[in-house]
Design a protein around this nucleic acid. Structure first.
Lengths: 143, 143
DNA sequence: TCCACTTGTTTAGCTGGCTAATTATTTCTA
DNA sequence: TAGAAATAATTAGCCAGCTAAACAAGTGGA
């Protein structure tokens, strides 16, 4: 039962990769005046205009508080508009503005594609497929 | 050149895993009144009593500001003590208190081992070795 | 119908991360 | 040796995440 040091564990690797990956995403988003958390949210609204905050909360695996505040800042910066739901006055629906829609469209080019290319650099096709399969199992383990 | 949706990329998987992993680490640390960022810092001090804030900054791949504030909070909660360096009055050296040392020792049992076991659940030995190798390449790509 | 419960959102207050700018000290160099 | 440059830490102010607690609106049952 010879223990391996923490710095040699897969868990430690994951925490380092998570940070490096987020840092890189933020750097790529900086030119669009967006942050990583904001981008995922805009993307969801892009796919479903009029989505409610509660639906955003579920879809992003993030607390409702975080959604409220992120939406608030994105509205202040002109990326989206809020509107209270007619049929259920508790709920708030959000819609992308033109600025918001343009941002989502250019992010795919400027961030996700670059990030994916950089992440998978130096890996063969077989290794990429394998990595994806293993990571899906890890995500399932942690969820 | 048929594009795959963002939600099918390895990058997206990594961001989801990063969050799930951090959440699980925080949950395991909660009983010790620690957060994930604080633990890594205490661990470094444990390995090198009297380490300076600047050395901590380099070792953790984190900004100097974050180190200053995390150290401040950990000192307030009695996990460590600060002391100005004699030979270089600019630098600050930090030392674990007994409480801090006990915390580091129990974290290894209560967090890292559990986290590693959960992370690698349902993977064979060969898959674990492979996953580690692939993740080391990814980390290298992103650093 | 009215009260209890559930649901959607928000407020308050915390940690963790960042950049930019400031302060204090050391080091280097003209 | 005096002044410029580099280094270590801090302050101010931002975004992202969280829990706990409050509030408002809908739902259901006695």
């Amino acid at each position: 039962m010879n223990k391996i040091p923490v710095s040699e564990t897969v868990s430690y690797l994951i925490s380092r990769i998570g940070k490096a990956h987020r840092n890189r995403a933020n750097a790529l988003l900086a030119s669009l005046n967006l942050h990583a958390g904001q981008e995922l949210l805009l993307q969801q609204i892009y796919q479903q205009q009029g989505i409610t905050l509660n639906e955003l909360t579920c879809g992003m695996c993030v607390s409702a508080v975080t959604v409220t505040r992120t939406v608030e800042r994105l509205e202040k910066n002109g990326f989206l508009k809020k509107e209270r739901c007619q049929s259920d006055q508790r709920a708030v629906r959000v819609y992308l503005t033109e600025k918001g829609a343009r941002a989502v469209e250019s992010v795919e080019q400027k961030m996700w594609e670059v990030l994916e290319r950089e992440t998978l650099d130096n890996l063969s096709m077989e290794e990429r497929v394998l990595l994806k399969r293993l990571l899906m199992q890890v995500l399932s383990n942690l969820s």
